[in-house]
């Protein structure tokens, strides 16, 4: 265990833990758009920058990304100093110039007092902030269907050759983790479309409710050894099936007792 001071309060943390997870546990609200616990910290959005110092640093301070900074004994952290807020404001201002139409970015920027970007808005902007969560989560799931393509300001998230990605199973995780909801998909009838690829949704054989795609179910069956017939019913019908079984068991035991 290490002991550190966050905003004047002494806090205990596990060795090797990142600063951001400690502040989150302590209920301190630090914005972070590229962070998700399912994947390794990345440090791309720079919104979780905090000010750190130590008693022995002689008044010298440093600014670090909390998501990537491992806690140290005796660390003194300021999560909302005026300088930190100013850095966040500028970064949000830059994001607002990139994604002027994103409600999520507009709201976060407004929280830091930026309602209109001071910079030149980027023409034909979409709402992607290139946080890389979609690609990293896809990689974490083991599919690696999409990746970032190119570099710098022209970088985009795309499937290989910008064609329908052969390795995508239509699990929607990319769209689910996107902080600005920019990844579009459509569920219509028993068809799901994402990244220009169509998938068949498995319909519950009792009620017709759809949960996941057949490709995803097949991947789970083969990789994780889950019997394929598990996917035939929806969760609701599974529960009903269980209660009916329970009834049979109880009535069988009553009959056996009498």
């Amino acid at each position: 265990m290490v002991s550190l001071t966050i905003n004047g309060r002494v806090v205990q943390a596990n060795k090797g833990e990142m600063l951001l997870s400690v502040t989150r546990r302590e209920g301190i609200d630090i914005p972070a758009l590229c962070h998700h616990d399912a994947v390794e910290p990345f440090g791309a959005c720079r919104l979780c920058m905090v000010e750190i110092t130590k008693a022995e640093w002689d008044g010298w301070t440093n600014y670090v990304a909390a998501c990537l900074y491992p806690v140290e004994d005796g660390l003194i952290v300021q999560t909302h100093s005026s300088k930190v807020n100013e850095l966040r404001r500028t970064v949000l201002d830059l994001l607002l110039a990139r994604c002027p139409n994103s409600p999520e970015i507009r709201q976060l920027a407004a929280e830091y007092g930026v309602t209109q970007t001071a910079y030149e808005e980027i023409p034909d902007a979409d709402n992607c902030i290139l946080c890389g969560l979609c690609t990293r989560v896809c990689e974490r799931l083991g599919f690696k269907a999409i990746s970032t393509v190119g570099r710098g300001h022209d970088k985009v998230v795309a499937p290989p050759l910008k064609e329908a990605p052969p390795d995508c199973v239509g699990c929607l995780s990319c769209a689910q983790v996107c902080p600005t909801n920019v990844i579009q998909y459509e569920d219509e009838g028993n068809k799901r479309t994402i990244w220009n690829k169509s998938f068949e949704l498995i319909a519950c054989k009792e009620c017709g409710k759809q949960t996941i795609t057949r490709d995803f179910a097949e991947a789970l069956s083969s990789q994780r050894n889950i019997p394929e017939d598990y996917f035939e019913l929806c969760d609701e019908c599974h529960r009903r099936e269980l209660s009916v079984k329970m009834g049979s068991i109880v009535s069988w035991s009553r009959e056996a007792a009498s």
């Binding site: 616990d37 399912a38 989560v137 699990c171 996941i212 019913l233 929806c234 609701e236 599974h238 529960r239």
Partner: peptide, 20 residues
């Protein structure tokens, strides 16, 4: 915090006890 809402568990639980 780790869940990416892929719904795999919802679909896989044979007793329907993972829920959305």
């Amino acid at each position: 915090d780790k869940c990416v809402k892929c719904m795999a568990c919802v679909a896989a639980c044979p007793f329907g006890c993972s829920l959305h």
